[in-house]
Structure formats: C-alpha cells, structure tokens
Amino acid sequence: MVTAYIQILIYGLINGALYGLVGLGLALVFGVMSYLNVAHGALIMIASYACFWLFHLLKVDPFLSSLLIVPCFFLLGVIIYKILFDSLKRFPEGQKTKNSLLISFGLLLILSNLVTILWTADERAVTPHYAGFVIQFFGLRIPYIGIGAVLFAVVVSILLDLFLSKTYFGKGIRAASQDHEAAAMMGINVGTTYLISFGIGVALAGIPGIIVSLSSFNPSLSFELTNKALVVIILAGVGSVYGVLLGGFALGLAEAIGVLFIGATYREVIGLVLFVLFLLLRPQGLMGKRS
C-alpha cells in the first residue's frame, strides 16, 4: 500500500519536472519584459509535433532532436517577437501586459487551429524503443522517460541560471528586467536584450515539447499547457529559475496527492484551485517577497 502511494508521488514528481520546464519560458518572458505570452502552450505543442515528425520521418531520437529543435525555436521566437511584440515595448507596464496577452491569445488560437488543420486532431506519440522501459526499485517502477524528464529539467534550470547570473549578457537581461530605463543608461541595448530574451523564452518551449511528445498529445493540449505554465508562475513567482522549477514540482506533487485523496478525474481542478487560491492570498508566489 505504502509503495503504491510512493509510486503515485514519483509520478507526481516526474509530471512536476515537466511543469517546471513548461513554466520556465513563460516566466522568463514575463519576468524580463512583462509580456504575458499565453501562446507558450501552443509553441510547446508545435515542438512536440516537430519532435514527432523528426522521429517518424528521419528516425531521430527524441532527446537528441532537442539539439535541432531548441536553436530553431530560438529563431522562431526572434521572428515572432519582431513581427508581433516589438511594437509593444513603448507602452507603460500594465498596457504592455494587456496588449501582449491579447496578441498572444490570438496567436494561441491561430497556432492550435493551424495544427489541427494541418495534422488533424488525432492523438499521437513518439515511441522510441526504450519508451516502455522501467527501473525496478524496491517494488517501485520508475520509467526511463521520467528520469530523462527530471534530468532535463534540472540541467536546463542550472544552465539557464548560470547564463543569467554569470555571463555578461545574462546580467544585462536581469538588469533590464529590474529597470529597463536605468539599464539603458548603463549602456545595455534594451531592444536587443528583449529580442534575445524572447528568443530564449520560445527556445525553452522546445524542451518540454519533447517530453510531452513521448506520451500521447493532440492539438487541444496547447490550452492545457498554457494553463499549467500560468499555474506554475503564479505558484512560484517569476523571481528565480529554481523557484519556477520548485513551483513545477509543487504542482506535480499537489496533483499527485489530490489524485490519492479525490480521484484522478479532478486532477486538473486541483491545480486550478491552488492557482486561484494563490492568486487571491499570495500573489507574489511561494518564494516571492511581498512588495
């Protein structure tokens, strides 16, 4: 019995790693330039399709395909930013968030419908030969793919944190997110910084896309993923990379515990209820300080 409970918690942690990755890109973009990019879920879903076609047509291993997908998504992000979001940066902060919300909402509708039209609403999955492999461990079963997801989440978080705190460019991004006018006066090109940050934000959508593609997915997933990303950034706040990762794990565990006590049908509701409660009672997030 206890093993079954622990088993559910392990699956919760694996889901949590995915949620953390899903939230990371949205949190970066929202934290740096106050753009609320609700199309993030759709971008993740497109990465899943990219991974799917790479696997089916060219037999590329899904984890290896990240080497191709992530740079392509960076370029995609730069293009999207140039076309849609560049003109918003002159607005004051509240207006910026609202307009970016509206535009990315349109983008979400376009992308999810485009995918449905191009590739139908069928359920798909990438099935590499190790898809069903598990590690047996005191009666617990840990799937290979789950281990991959957790590793991916941790490695990506560490790399992103190192980039933001150690490199000159990362410091520029953090400076622009704290006060873009002061940053501009200190000689940081805020326009380029925004462009690159948005590119990285979209590139970060590529990685959860790969993990999503390993279980079954369909075009309607884009709404669900956006919703998870929003829950994660509300739970965690947008202050730190590890905070977002922890927020993801917290959501995954909360869902798992909810499944234990309430049942699997209400799994989605648990996250959402948490989300609304946090919005009302602790809008600065788990880790944030009250401003």
Partner: peptide
C-alpha cells in the same frame, strides 16, 4: 474576490475559474 487582482491577474484568474467550471461539469 478575483477583482482584487491586478489587471492581467484578473484575466488569468477568471480563465482558471472557467476551466474549473468546465472540468467539474464534465465530471
């Protein structure tokens, strides 16, 4: 309660409420 939230939090808070209602009714 959600109106106490700032503008964009109001948008995503109400979206959360709509999703809760949808999933609850579906079940």
């Amino acid at each position: 309660p959600t109106l106490r939230l700032r503008a964009h939090y109001f948008a995503i808070g109400t979206l959360g409420v709509a999703m809760i209602a949808l999933i609850t009714i579906q079940n």
